[in-house]
């Protein structure tokens, strides 16, 4: 911790997030964690919960920053805190536990409804996909990812999975994808998304 700390401006944070700069991401992560931690621990949450919510918050920030239309109309801290608060409130409402909620005047809030709704919709899709992949099992899941995400060639896949040639690998990939399609498009959403 004694190493000289580089101070970033908010614009530098946002640019760094856009370009995927790890140093910037790390600095940003450290800078705002405590605000979220304090809020969640003060409002019926544990440290683990705070960590999860904070990481989800950073994901929402990260994905919105990628949009060409993104424009920050408030302090970065206000934006982060608003997202974290909304995510935490949603979670508290879902749990059946009664909780004490302390309104705090010390942090400003901005409207992040759109961001939250979009994020939750996307989460449902990604969960569905992850579930489908789990359902699919191995070697199918890895094979599909190797081809469509890692963009390995059929020859490389044949070698990696021990198929005799690229055509066999291709057939296997075909079967796996058919199954994945079936899983993915037939799984019903686990729950309706709360819109507001």
């Amino acid at each position: 911790m004694s190493r000289s700390k580089v101070q970033f401006t908010e614009d530098q944070f946002i640019d760094g997030l856009r370009t995927g700069n790890n140093e910037v991401l790390s600095a940003l992560y450290k800078k705002y964690y405590n605000i979220v931690l304090k809020f969640i621990v003060n409002n019926s949450g544990t440290q683990e919960a705070a960590q999860d919510i904070y990481q989800e918050t950073i994901i929402v920030l990260y994905e919105n920053v990628q949009k060409p239309s993104f424009e920050l109309n408030c302090q970065l801290q206000t934006y982060i805190f608003s997202i974290a608060k909304r995510l935490w409130l949603k979670q508290l409402k879902k749990s059946s536990k009664t909780f004490l909620f302390k309104e705090d005047g010390e942090n400003e809030l901005v409207d992040v409804s759109e961001e939250i709704t979009e994020h939750l919709n996307k989460e449902v899709e990604l969960d569905k996909l992850n579930q489908s992949l789990a359902e699919l099992g191995e070697p199918c899941a890895t094979l599909i990812k190797d081809f469509y995400v890692q963009k390995l060639s059929m020859d490389e896949i044949a070698e990696k999975f021990g198929y005799t040639n690229a055509d066999n690998a291709k057939n296997q990939k075909y079967k796996c994808l058919q199954r994945l399609k079936k899983c993915f498009f037939e799984i019903l959403p686990v729950e309706q998304i709360e819109r507001k």
């Binding site: 996307k122 990604l126 996909l129 992850n130 599909i144 990812k145 469509y148 995400v149 994808l177 993915f184």
Partner: peptide, 9 residues
Amino acid sequence: LIDTLNKAE
């Protein structure tokens, strides 16, 4: 499907 796969990864 392919798009979601990439997003998930």
